[in-house]
Design a protein around this nucleic acid. Structure first.
Lengths: 192, 192
DNA sequence: TTGCAACTAGAGAGGTCTCTCTAGTTCATG
DNA sequence: CATGAACTAGAGAGACCTCTCTAGTTGCAA
C-alpha cells in the first residue's frame, strides 16, 4: 500500500559504517549519510528519529552479526569449543572486515553524541546478557573459573583482533594458531 | 620578560582529558576547555593552534608517560623482564587511572575531528617505533618468536587492563599475580 | 623610559550540524 | 475512484563550534 522504498535501512547503515571507518565518529553525521546514500534528510529521519539512533543501529547490527557467529562456536560447552570460539573471533574478523573494524575501533559510547537512548541501551544489554549466559554455561560445564575463561576467550581474542586489524590488515593463520595455543594454554587448569 | 602565565598547558590538557572521559571525544571542545580552566579562547589558541592539537596533546602526553614506564620495565632484555613489563602495565594503570582510561578507551584517531596532523602523526609513529624496537630486542635476546612475545606482553596485559578499568575499578594485586602467571606461561617456550 | 615578547581577553564571523516542518508522491485497498 | 499509510523531498530555524581578530596587559631589558 505504501510508496515503494527508495532508500533502504541497510544502505543507510552501510553508509554510516563507512563514514565512521573513514573519518571517525564525527564524520557519521545524518547529513553525510544523506549525501552518501542520495536520500533526503526527511527520508533518513523517517527511519531514525535521531542521528544517534542511526549510528547506534549500525554498531549494533555489527555486534549482532558477530555474536551470532561467536555464540554458535561456543555452543557445545567444552574447553575445546571455548578455544575454538576464541579463534573464531579472528576468522569472523577476516570475513567481515568492516563490521569488525567498527566494533574493534569504536565502543558504542564513542559513536554517540549524547547519552545512549533507553531502547539502544536495552538492546546492547540483551546482547551482553546472552554472552554472559553462554560464558557462564561454559564455565560450569568445564569447571574453569569464569574470570580465567573470560580472559582466554574474550579479552585475549579481542586484543589480538584489535591489534591485527589496526592497520587494516586481516588476521593470518599464524595469528590464529598463536591465539589457539595461548587460549588452550590458559584454559588448562594446571599447566602440566 | 613576558606577562606571567595564568593558565598552564598542563591544566588545559588535564581539562581535555577529564572532558573526554566524562562525555566522550565530542565533549572535549576548545570552548569546554576554556570554561573548565577559566582561560579565554585566545589563551587556549595561543598554545594550541587547533582544537585537535589540544586533544591530541592530552592523549600523547598519556602515551608518553605510559611508554616511559613500560620500556623501562622491559629494559634488561630477558623473559623475566618481559613478564615484569606485562605486570607493569597494570601497576601503571593503577597509579595513573585517568591517563590509563584515556589510552584504553580511545585511540588517537577517535579523539580528532579532522585528519591527524603531520606533527602529531610523527610523534605517535615515533612512540610506536620505540616500542617495536624494544620488543624486537627482547625477542632477539630471549629467542622467543616476536608474535608470541607480543601476545604475552602487549595483547594480554592490554586485555586485562581494559577489562579491569572498564567499570572504573583499579587492578588488584590478585589481577597482577594472575597476569604474571599467564604471561610467564605464554613465554615459556615449551609448556611443561 | 621605551620597546618588545609573551600573554590575556572576549566579541563575533562563518561554518556545520540536528531536527522540524510543510508539501507532495505512490500504491494497495475498500 | 478515493482514501490513507508509508514514504520522499528539501528548506530553514536554532544550536553549537572553531578559529580569527583587535585590543589590551605585564614585566624584563636596553
Amino acid at each position: 500500500m505504501p510508496q515503494p522504498v527508495k532508500h533502504s535501512i541497510e544502505a543507510m547503515l552501510d553508509a554510516a559504517r563507512a563514514l565512521v571507518l573513514a573519518g571517525g565518529p564525527a564524520a557519521a553525521s545524518a547529513r553525510a549519510v544523506c549525501q552518501a546514500t542520495g536520500a533526503s534528510s526527511g527520508s533518513v529521519y523517517h527511519r531514525f528519529p535521531r542521528r544517534d539512533d542511526l549510528v547506534a543501529a549500525a554498531w549494533l547490527r555489527a555486534q549482532d552479526r558477530f555474536l551470532h557467529a561467536y555464540l554458535d562456536a561456543l555452543e557445545p560447552a567444552s574447553a575445546e569449543a571455548a578455544a575454538h570460539a576464541a579463534v573464531s573471533v579472528l576468522t569472523w574478523c577476516g570475513a567481515h572486515p568492516e563490521d569488525a573494524a567498527l566494533l574493534l575501533r569504536h565502543s558504542l559510547r564513542d559513536l554517540l553524541r549524547g547519552d545512549i537512548s533507553p531502547a539502544l541501551a536495552a538492546r546492547a544489554e540483551a546482547d551482553r546478557q546472552a554472552l554472559d549466559a553462554a560464558l557462564t554455561a561454559t564455565a560450569a560445564a568445564t569447571g574453569i573459573a569464569l574470570p580465567d575463561l573470560i580472559l582466554a576467550v574474550v579479552d585475549l581474542p579481542y586484543a589480538v583482533a584489535r591489534r591485527t586489524l589496526r592497520d587494516g590488515a586481516t588476521p593470518t593463520p599464524a595469528d590464529a594458531a598463536a591465539l589457539h595455543r595461548a587460549a588452550t594454554l590458559l584454559l588448562a587448569d594446571r599447566p602440566c
